[in-house]
Simulated assay, not measured.
Amino acid sequence: MDKTILTILLMMFSFFSKGQSDLEAKFSEANSDMNLRNMYQRIIWKMQPTNQYLFDQIKGEVQYTVEENGYEVIAIPEILGTFNLNDKTFLWADKNPSINKKLNDEVDSFRKNLPKTYQKDKFKSSTEFNTNLLSLFSYQLDANGYDYQRQDNTIIYYSLLTIKVFKNGDEVLIIEPKNHTTKLDIPKNIELIKKFHKEKLEINKKYHEQKISSGKAFKKIEKVHLKYWLNEDPYFFPSLSWPCDFDEKSILEWKEFKIDNNRLFVMYTTNLGWASESYAYEIDLNATGDKRIINEY
């Protein structure tokens, strides 16, 4: 191969690699922040995949029904795009004639700052990459969070801007787009949860290896649970499982944060193998010793 051509190819590859590396760094930063924002929504109004939803493009809103607490939640979305599960292609929202233009007016400027591979109207993708892309988009919008829903053979990805919470027809809360959490650095609270996880993991492992019976395992894990939980409601008693999503080997990130009304949380993000997921424990600010956990999300 001609040396000039080889040099050009190497330069092109180097440029692409750097662009991809920069994008992955941006994804990491965005995911770290957006995990907190989505967790805040889970804490405040129980945002979760099991909620019923209605995407109303004419009204320009997503309506969630949260049966557990009787909330009706209305969010203003900004649609990033859709993913076709059949041919594994991502289509930008502003290039999709079936999507209301008022719901994707930020997409074009976002796309222009991505590597050229992703500036095409449609490109081959994966659900993991789409979620990273949505996270970055939402982060740059300073959104409240993000969500995605499957509709037949398509997944629609969108950011959550202003959110209004209703109960019995009355508006009880407006959540303006921003990060409503305050990150903290108090290692003792994270270490507390790590100890709790380690003791639970040992019991689950012994049960999985058939070294103890289910009855004995349940008694042991309940004892460990009550050692760390101030809230002794049986609703929160753990089950036996393997593998465990709280295994330290699979945890990607730990965070501690407060929210507006001075509530304290420890959150961890874990690699489930097919996706990452975040969970949080609420810690009683006034409790002492190990018995300090009062809720989980």
Score class of each variant (00 low, 15 high):
L6F: 13
I8V: 15
I8A: 13
M11D: 14
M12A: 14
F13V: 05
K18W: 15
K18S: 11
S21V: 14
D22E: 12
F27Q: 05
S28T: 01
E29V: 13
N35G: 03
L36R: 09
R42Q: 00
R42T: 05
I44P: 00
I44L: 06
Q48R: 15
N51D: 10
N51A: 06
N51W: 08
Q52F: 11
L54D: 07
L54K: 06
D56T: 09
Q57N: 05
V62R: 05
V62N: 03
E68L: 15
Y71S: 10
V73N: 01
A75H: 01
A75W: 00
I76D: 01
I76H: 02
I79L: 03
L80K: 02
D87Q: 00
K88L: 07
L91D: 08
W92I: 01
A93F: 12
P97R: 15
K102A: 10
L103A: 06
E106L: 08
V107D: 03
S109Y: 07
F110V: 03
R111C: 03
R111A: 11
L114Q: 13
Y118N: 08
K120T: 15
D121T: 07
K122L: 14
F123A: 07
K124V: 13
S125H: 04
T127W: 03
T127M: 13
E128A: 04
L133V: 01
S135H: 06
L136S: 11
F137W: 09
Y139P: 11
Q140K: 14
L141W: 02
L141G: 04
D142G: 05
D142S: 10
N144G: 14
N144W: 10
G145T: 07
Q149F: 04
Q151V: 15
D152S: 04
N153F: 13
L160Y: 09
L160F: 05
I163M: 08
D170Y: 08
L173I: 00
N179E: 13
H180G: 07
H180R: 14
H180W: 15
K183P: 03
L184E: 14
L184P: 03
D185L: 08
I186K: 04
P187E: 09
N189Y: 12
I190Q: 07
E191Q: 11
K194N: 06
K194F: 00
H197V: 07
H197C: 10
E202D: 12
N204S: 02
K206L: 14
S214C: 05
S214V: 06
K216W: 06
K219M: 12
E222H: 12
L226P: 02
K227C: 00
Y228D: 00
W229V: 07
W229T: 07
E232M: 09
P234C: 09
Y235V: 08
P238E: 06
P238S: 05
L240Q: 03
D247M: 10
D247I: 09
L252A: 02
W254N: 01
W254A: 08
K255V: 05
E256V: 13
K258H: 10
N262E: 12
L264K: 06
L264A: 00
Y268A: 01
W274P: 00
A275D: 08
S276E: 11
S278A: 03
Y279G: 05
A280W: 08
A287L: 10
K291E: 15
K291V: 15
R292S: 10
N295I: 11
